[in-house]
Amino acid sequence: MTAPAPAPVVSTTALRRSAVRRVPPAVVISFALVAFVLLWSVVPGLFTSHDPAVGVPADKFLGPSGAHWFGTDHLGRDLFARVVHGSASSVSSALIAVAIAVLVGGLIGLVAGFVGGWTDTVLARLVDVFLAIPEFLLAVIVVSSLGFETTNAAIATGVSAVGIFARVMRSEVLKTGRAVFVEAAYLQGGSRWHILTRHVLPNASRSVLTLAVLQFGYSILIIASLAFLGYGDPPPASDWGLLISVGKDYPLAPWLIYAPALVMIATVLSVNRISRWLRKTD
């Protein structure tokens, strides 16, 4: 037996580096893809020199090529440029949807779980209603009641997800509320507000964050579905769902469907992968 090796001194940066090394390659790719899409939506001009709204009529229905990566549409517009410029609207509406779901749903769940008693019972039935109406139908009636616009579609999508966030937040709050350290904090004279902000919320936020990431991807799909039905901004807007909806009218140019669909699926898949990774590293 040799003498035990001295314990290696681990600096925090080394720790962080080893944590980075443990990130699976698929997650790295997912992060890169999402980063790309986010960049598209912030500075679309960097990625394409074509104009998304003005086409060259002579160049209509060109298949994917070096000059037009995703081909061109029925007006000769570059499809890649339209996808890139459309991502801003798709991404920001998904963000709005998630923000609404997290804030409203989170607040309902927090109050229900933290106050308890009758408040909890009443809110639980309300949440049941949100969950009982099929998400997509709920989004459809909300958007039809607000008016057909992409922002309204985003709000509708957020409303349709309120139920699930309320439920998760409530169960997290209840779980933390029973923990010994929360009891200890009470015994030490911690106020309810102190316990809520210092103990309950930070502990619940992890699950809610994971769900929010997942919901971000899901919202992209729901908003695209609403846009597909024509409940978002009309053309020349180029939301991904709208692009697919326009593309379906030209069966001889299938890339008009495939290209935006693949971008959308890849984005949502990456977001799901990131969410799963976050859940695992919990």
Partner: peptide, 22 residues
């Protein structure tokens, strides 16, 4: 499951129609 969750039904429907019907 992850892949299925990322594919909206309208995309699957359009692809099926394009391939199998058209």
């Amino acid at each position: 499951p992850s892949l299925f969750l990322s594919m909206p039904n309208f995309v699957i429907g359009l692809v099926l129609i394009n391939v199998f019907a058209f």
